[in-house]
Simulated assay, not measured.
Amino acid sequence: MAAGEAPVFYREVSAGPRGSGTAGPGRPDVLFLHGQAFTSKTWEALGTLALLAGEGYRAVAIDLPGYGDSPLVETVATVQGRVAFLDHVLQELGMQRPVLVSPSMSGRFVLPFLLVQGDRLAGFVSIAPVGTKDYTAEQYRRVQTPTLILYGDRDTRLGSQALQSLRHLPGHRVAVVPDAGHACYLDKPEDFHRALLGFLRQLK
Rank of each mutant, 00 (worst) to 15 (best):
A2F: 06
G4N: 03
G4L: 01
E5H: 10
P7E: 11
R11N: 12
R11W: 10
V13M: 13
G21P: 09
T22L: 13
T22I: 13
G24L: 00
G24W: 05
P25S: 08
P25N: 09
R27W: 08
R27I: 05
R27E: 13
L31E: 09
L31W: 10
F32P: 03
G35E: 06
G35Y: 02
Q36T: 15
F38K: 11
F38E: 13
F38Q: 15
T39V: 09
S40L: 09
K41Y: 12
T42D: 14
E44M: 13
A45Q: 14
L51F: 15
G54I: 02
R58P: 00
R58G: 04
V60M: 09
A61F: 07
Y67E: 01
S70D: 01
S70C: 00
S70A: 01
S70H: 01
P71A: 08
P71Y: 03
P71V: 02
P71R: 07
V73A: 07
V73H: 10
V76C: 01
T78N: 00
T78Y: 05
V79S: 11
V79D: 12
V83E: 06
V83I: 12
F85K: 06
H88T: 13
H88V: 10
L93A: 10
M95G: 05
Q96K: 14
R97G: 08
R97V: 01
P98M: 04
V99R: 02
V101L: 13
P103A: 07
M105L: 14
M105Q: 15
M105W: 10
G107K: 00
G107I: 00
P112G: 07
D119G: 14
D119A: 13
L121W: 07
G123I: 12
G123W: 06
G123H: 07
G123R: 06
F124Q: 14
V125P: 03
V125A: 03
S126L: 09
S126V: 06
S126Y: 06
S126R: 05
I127A: 09
A128D: 04
T132G: 01
K133W: 15
D134R: 15
E138Y: 08
E138H: 10
Y140S: 06
Y140K: 01
R141Q: 12
R141D: 10
R141P: 09
Q144S: 14
L150Q: 08
L150F: 05
Y151P: 03
D153S: 07
D153E: 03
R154Q: 13
R154Y: 11
D155G: 02
D155P: 06
T156H: 11
R157M: 14
L158A: 11
G159C: 00
S160R: 15
Q161C: 01
Q161V: 08
S165I: 03
S165L: 07
L166T: 00
R167S: 04
H168F: 12
L169E: 00
G171C: 09
V177N: 06
P178H: 01
D179T: 06
D179N: 13
C184A: 13
Y185D: 02
L186V: 10
P189I: 03
E190Q: 15
F192S: 05
H193K: 14
H193A: 15
L197D: 05
G198I: 09
F199H: 00
Q202C: 14
Q202N: 10
L203M: 06
L203K: 05
